[in-house]
């Protein structure tokens, strides 16, 4: 059986929280699979005009980095690690987050913000990049995702 639709929920505002979702969404479109991305909680930073240019790798509480715990909290470390990682990604032709969101949107992937989170953080649609289709409720998300697979990151 083939997969026709994926709906991906992004709940984290770190680089490693956002990129996998964008890669999965873009990859789905490349295979002709319908893709929805639903940004909630800190994941909304990825579509926030004022913030999506400055998404960073979490260097604290991230054992996968194999950094000494105290070093992760030193000022500038997060920026440095992020810069290194972005350089690596550029080599693989993986775009920065703002461009990646444009690519997904141009590919026909749909971007949504979570209504409860928008209200909680006191945001409006104007805070988001124009590629965001709309602010939707959880119920609307499930209706949209019906018949496909849902992934949470």
């Amino acid at each position: 059986m083939s997969l026709d639709k994926v709906s991906i929920i992004v709940s984290k505002g770190s680089l490693e929280g956002v990129y996998p979702a964008l890669i999965m969404a873009n990859g789905a479109r490349m295979e002709g699979i319908e893709a929805n991305v639903f940004f909630t909680f800190f994941g909304m930073d990825a579509i926030n005009k004022a913030r999506h240019d400055a998404i960073k790798v979490a260097t604290v509480g991230n054992p996968g980095l194999h950094l000494m715990t105290w070093l992760g909290g030193v000022p500038g470390i997060s920026a440095l690690v992020t810069k290194q990682m972005m350089k690596q990604m550029e080599k693989l032709d993986i775009p920065p987050i703002p461009e990646f969101l444009e690519l997904i949107s141009d590919s026909g992937g749909k971007l949504y913000a979570c209504k409860a989170s928008v209200e909680m953080f006191g945001l409006t649609k104007d805070d988001f990049i124009p590629q965001v289709e709309s602010i939707i409720t959880v119920g609307e998300f499930y209706q949209m995702a019906a018949g496909g697979q849902i992934n949470f990151t």
Partner: peptide, 13 residues
């Protein structure tokens, strides 16, 4: 797909 959209002369949409 990124390069295709930028270099082929046909944009992503």
């Amino acid at each position: 797909i990124r390069t295709l959209g930028k270099e082929s002369g046909v944009q992503v949409k």
